[in-house]
Nucleic acid binder design. Sequence first.
DNA 1: GTCTATAACTCGATAGAC
DNA 2: GTCTATCGAGTTATAGAC
Lengths: 200, 200
Amino acid sequence: MKETTTEQHIIEAAKKVFIAKGYENATMRDIAKEANVNSAMVHYYFRSKDKLFGIVFDSIGKFFYENVYQIYKEDLDIFEKIRKVVYNRITILIQHPELPSFLVREMFKRPELLEHNYSRQIKESCDVFMLQVEAAMANGRIRKINPMNLFLNIDSLCVFPFHIRPLMQHCSEISEAEFNELMNERCTDVADFIIQSIKL
Amino acid sequence: MKETTTEQHIIEAAKKVFIAKGYENATMRDIAKEANVNSAMVHYYFRSKDKLFGIVFDSIGKFFYENVYQIYKEDLDIFEKIRKVVYNRITILIQHPELPSFLVREMFKRPELLEHNYSRQIKESCDVFMLQVEAAMANGRIRKINPMNLFLNIDSLCVFPFHIRPLMQHCSEISEAEFNELMNERCTDVADFIIQSIKL
DNA sequence: GTCTATAACTCGATAGAC
DNA sequence: GTCTATCGAGTTATAGAC
């Protein structure tokens, strides 16, 4: 159990501030205040706002993807795997509903953020899953379908509602708690929706 | 055929710049340069960056939603309607792939942007569609399903890939043209995916 | 390592001449 | 309406005392 150093303390504060405000709206002063240190300290430890943000972005991206992409590599029946992926993804999203929009926001502004990252991990799990889909098609367990699109569909159905959460809440006039409740119910529905579509 | 006034000229320039850079990264100087006018002129016509952005955001949001949400209100067989919605949505998205991320980016930072907007239009078309889903369930044309989730699923499957486009392009090492080709092929697949899932 | 002070810069907005 | 010039506020980043 490592002690919380000043450095880690600042990183945690930076995560909170960057997620809440985005890169441009977050200031080094904000982060310093959140971490209860002087703003010069933040520069002392991380040289620049850019360096600090790079560390934060990598950490968040890895956290967001690694959990669920491990599941794709597990040795599970394809239907079970889909259910497990959907359940895990939506559960994590309910706990961290602001992550998808954060990642998309920053990724679009600076695609170079993707360079030294978890991208290869994603590609690996995608490849593993697509092979399994091919096999299931050959065995006649599922209908003929483009494996890449199936992979995309799973993520789409899980993540998209969190991308448009403010719009959904505004249109349906629901609170954050009610939104989470909706997503919780949606969990089973999404898995059913996918499996109904591909099973033979 | 209305002549292009300076005012409209600036709005078009502002759209381009705001979409490319986002609200905070775009400067009034950028917009003025894009519109080939002095930066004081932009303030003269629109008072503030906020006012100008509000106009741009509303216009883009309306454009992005109105086309496809009209279709939901048309008198079509439910399967035909789903195919038409999917086709239209993806076609528009291929022509304007940067709009979803733009709207999400700004919507999350300032949810008040949704106040005086197309939100009611979305809600209306959603309501119409959900009624149709209920009827189709009663008629035994489709299986039992949460209508709201079906509505969400359609949008998810169409829009989500455009949200994560930089990530997809980076992971698959594909160009923008190849991405568009993928989305074009995906059009039929998505409609099939949905219909396979709900038909009896 | 930690602080204060400030340099250097950019941006939104306006004043004022034409 | 259109331009130049500039103010004032807010930012990153660093220098230098402790």
